[in-house]
Design a protein around this nucleic acid. Sequence first.
DNA 1: TCATGATTTTAACAGTGTAAAGATTGGATC
DNA 2: GATCCAATCTTTACACTGTTAAAATCATGA
Lengths: 200, 200
Amino acid sequence: MVTDKTTEKGSTRYHHGNLRPTLLSVARALLEEGGPQALSLREIGRRAGVSAPAAYHYFSSLDALAAALAEQGFAELSEEIDAALAGPRRHLLAGGIAYVAFARANPGLYRLMFGEGFQAYSKGNEAIGASRMRVYRQMKEDLEKRLAPEKVANAALFLWSLTHGLALLTIDGQIEPGVDPDARVAEVLKLAGLGLPAAK
Amino acid sequence: MVTDKTTEKGSTRYHHGNLRPTLLSVARALLEEGGPQALSLREIGRRAGVSAPAAYHYFSSLDALAAALAEQGFAELSEEIDAALAGPRRHLLAGGIAYVAFARANPGLYRLMFGEGFQAYSKGNEAIGASRMRVYRQMKEDLEKRLAPEKVANAALFLWSLTHGLALLTIDGQIEPGVDPDARVAEVLKLAGLGLPAAK
DNA sequence: TCATGATTTTAACAGTGTAAAGATTGGATC
DNA sequence: GATCCAATCTTTACACTGTTAAAATCATGA
């Protein structure tokens, strides 16, 4: 069979396309369409115009492919946080806003990175566990500049919990429609610095 | 075939056991062993000593069975929070501690209740969406007694995010081993009332 | 006693991840 | 330029899954 294989760029290809990136990009689209549950090697192959076992030349399993996606996500998230922290606005708040904005822009990917499947595909993949810790470190380092040492651990867990929880609830549609999500997120995150408002 | 079917109680059974509760309890065990991903109708049937399609007389699908488990979970969680709020300790803090303790005691169930599969099995099941909201209401009602009306919405989202995030991070093993989880949770939740510690 | 209705089983279908084997091809070597 | 090689992809097959349709079984009311 000598059918033409046209890649996304429209050019007719030799053996077959540059598959690995194609697989990842197709998988990512699938991920955002239907969440981590929708990730399927056969569907990925189908959309890439390739037979399902073809993916096994680049990934040892579906979980391995998912892990690669997650690593991609951690790299991007880390970058966005760095950019926000380098920006003109208040450090921790800007970082938190960027964190939640990333989750909102990539809900499927965020669920993959922090979801239930995490233990499964991170088995034997130490890199991705480390990636996950890196974003935590970013928060923590900022806190270390501003707090007494014995208070850092609790404050870091506090901030990470708040941000992570807010990201997930946002993704799950718990922010009322009609309000600007960034503004709402900022308001909520500000409470972290101020504590609960005073009693009436 | 006239084989004896012995239930968990050890008694020999007529037609076959009281299946629905057995299915639920077996499924719940499976859930805590391997997380929501491990839920499998065939495995549930196997452990219940019954053929897989038997479950279809009580649940229209695997998702429906998962929804029933989730509802069970919401009822229990709600009860534990009520009990904590009625107790002698500080209201919101005690509620938060009970919330996280529930997640720690039932990690698989908690992931099912708030995890990625949620949208899937809550389709056409309005009851469980409502159940999910009920725990939010509990927090919110308590806040309404203590805050000016315009501050309630943000404060509620703030507290829910923090508690939900802390529960998930705890489940994911982000609390250092060796410390008492309840104590650690209490310390972190206290920061919600106090704000971040003052700069050094 | 016996028919009825509820319960469970067997058989089958379409879908999945994955392993093993064979086919195809692009590029290096003569 | 022809030829071999190693990388890449396909075909085939297996075990597993959720789910449906049909048949078998049993508990109980008439």
